[in-house]
């Protein structure tokens, strides 16, 4: 009788442990399903032994910040660059890591950037926040805010930029 009782206790413990392990696996699975930036929404089926997992990659908006500058940068232009970098590091570190937010600094005087400058009509210093989603680009000209605020009111500049990026990521 004592042996049977011990066997039952051992069986219950084994069942509970396996249940805990199962739920851990489940949560790991859930954790691995994160919104990642992909070029387009896509569904694939991965087969593993007897099971098939449907993997759905969902496209999410991407934000690219273009900072056009002259070869010789002035104090205001440098302040704009610093402000943008601080916002990305302090607020959007994970999004930058995931490729959802990126900063591209473009020398507007370099020949290789001529096409991009033409596209943005940026022939000097300019700051654009560009949202890309489902093949469409929408851009917000942030040049004025940059020059008006970045040097002498950096916190106001960073706040406006942060709000714009948050809006564009939605």
């Amino acid at each position: 009788m004592q042996k049977i009782t011990l066997f039952l206790i051992a069986a219950c413990a084994a069942f509970m442990l396996s249940s805990c392990g199962g739920s851990k696996q489940e949560s790991e699975k859930t954790d691995s399903v994160k919104a990642v930036y992909v070029e387009k929404t896509d569904t694939t089926i991965q087969e593993s032994g007897d099971t098939a997992i449907v993997v759905k990659k969902v496209e999410v908006p991407k934000v690219t910040i273009y900072l056009f500058h002259a070869a010789r940068r002035c104090a205001s232009c440098i302040a704009i660059g610093n402000g943008v970098n601080e916002v990305l590091q302090d607020v959007f570190k994970n999004e930058v890591k995931a490729g959802r937010v990126q900063l591209l600094e473009v020398d507007a005087e370099a020949k290789e950037n001529a096409a991009l400058c033409e596209k943005y009509e940026a022939f000097g210093t300019a700051l654009f926040v560009t949202r890309t989603f489902q093949g469409k680009e929408t851009r917000t000209d942030f040049t004025a805010q940059g020059f008006k605020l970045a040097k002498n009111k950096p916190d106001e500049f960073k706040q406006l930029l942060r709000e714009q990026i948050v809006k564009d990521l939605k």
């Binding site: 009509e121 940026a122 022939f123 000097g124 300019a126 040049t143």
Partner: peptide, 16 residues
């Protein structure tokens, strides 16, 4: 009408 952006982004092509 704030035209700061015009100034800084277009001055590289003054005619524009």
């Amino acid at each position: 009408v704030d035209i700061t952006d015009l100034g800084f982004s277009k001055i590289g092509k003054p005619e524009l």
